[in-house]
Amino acid sequence: MITLPRIMLATLVLIGGYVFVVAPRVEANTRTTASWQEQLAEPVPSFSPPASAPSRSRATFPQAGTAFFGVFTEKGPGDLTDYNGFVRAAGKSPQVMMFASGWGAEKHFDRQPFDRIVNRGMLPMLGWEPWDYRAESKTDRDRGTQPQYRLARISGGDFDGYLTEWAQGIKALGYPVAIRFAHEMNGYWYPWGESANGNQKGDYVAAWRHVHDLFDRLGAGNVIWVWSPNVVYDNATPLSQLYPGDAYVDWVGLSGYYGTAGMETYQTFEQIYRPTLNELKTLSRRPIVVTETAATDKQGRKADWITDLLQTLPRHPEIIGFLWYESVKETDWRIAATPAASAAFAQGIAQPYYGATWDPDMVPRRLIRTN
């Protein structure tokens, strides 16, 4: 099992609010909701191809026998420098792009980042963070302390005006949007973690369900809900305590990096992810997406790790895609950083397995495939 001393996590933060490497579990739930297909059949604005384009069947994303690859950059669609470097290095374009948005900083809905991503042929994934990352403490144990963003305030309705504006805005987009809400909740470094900020056991599930239900009531059925813990580590909050149930989740996401602070000794993808993947099998039937990953080159093995990643994922049919963190932060995580890393990524991603395609008429794969 991968362990991560808590003191080391202080260096693992991305400015938009991202840390890496911890775990998840799941509980049964009897709530029923309309299926994705039923939601799309409702009178919700939809993306319409040009009149001259042939009609498209409602295919599943990603298609059977394939996985998608995506990109997450620190600056998101507002500055495409890292994205463009990633595309050049990979030799082809990704199908998903994630960007982060904090409740305290981005106070109003803005459709432009979503449109910029869709106009480049990618599914937008919003990393939606209930905190003010500008006020983040630089003291490790205090990073998750922002009382105004306690989970009980979310489930209690204090942010319903804000949530309503965003739900209506996302509904009006008329195309699918993945929302990775309050990620890495099994750690202590964000205000929405149950081990931080005065939160109590059960608060996370209550907050998640409250946000989900509000979107449902407003008819925002174009959302793919992504529940995304960190890969497991010692003393993390048990995932079974945090999982809102399959009726509230479409995809399960995971964060896990090779080479975070103090852990530069080489570890394969299996060594980093296997304990969490085994745990998830007992918790959910939802597909898994590696929502954050990358590798250091401090020991000269970044290209090796990329090759291992892209050769290993096809042996995990439960994993339907991954997103690479293409930015310079704690280290230079970019595949574009060196010719060796670029070549390894381009060679691996050229496999037919990574040949998934996306368009706005597709529906998300919501059950794990075994073939």
Results as ranks from 00 to 15, higher is better:
residue 323 L to E: 12
residue 166 W to S: 00
residue 366 R to S: 07
residue 206 A to W: 02
residue 335 I to K: 03
residue 224 I to M: 08
residue 322 F to I: 10
residue 295 A to W: 10
residue 212 H to M: 03
residue 329 K to H: 11
residue 19 V to C: 07
residue 181 F to N: 01
residue 107 K to D: 00
residue 280 L to T: 00
residue 286 R to F: 03
residue 79 D to G: 09
residue 41 A to L: 11
residue 367 L to D: 13
residue 167 A to H: 04
residue 123 L to K: 03
residue 188 Y to R: 11
residue 208 W to K: 01
residue 234 D to E: 15
residue 28 A to R: 15
residue 219 G to Q: 05
residue 124 P to G: 12
residue 114 F to S: 06
residue 274 R to V: 03
residue 327 S to E: 10
residue 296 T to M: 05
residue 281 K to T: 04
residue 153 R to H: 12
residue 64 A to K: 15
residue 66 T to N: 07
residue 333 W to L: 10
residue 367 L to P: 02
residue 368 I to T: 11
residue 222 N to A: 09
residue 248 Y to K: 05
residue 211 V to P: 00
residue 131 W to M: 15
residue 345 F to A: 15
residue 328 V to G: 04
residue 370 T to H: 14
residue 111 R to S: 15
residue 149 Y to K: 02
residue 93 S to I: 05
residue 162 Y to W: 13
residue 87 V to L: 09
residue 370 T to R: 11
residue 127 G to M: 12
residue 70 G to R: 07
residue 284 S to Q: 04
residue 287 P to C: 11
residue 76 G to N: 05
residue 2 I to E: 05
residue 29 N to W: 02
residue 53 A to V: 11
residue 63 Q to E: 15
residue 66 T to Q: 11
residue 284 S to M: 02
residue 146 Q to P: 11
residue 8 M to I: 11
residue 367 L to N: 13
residue 336 A to G: 05
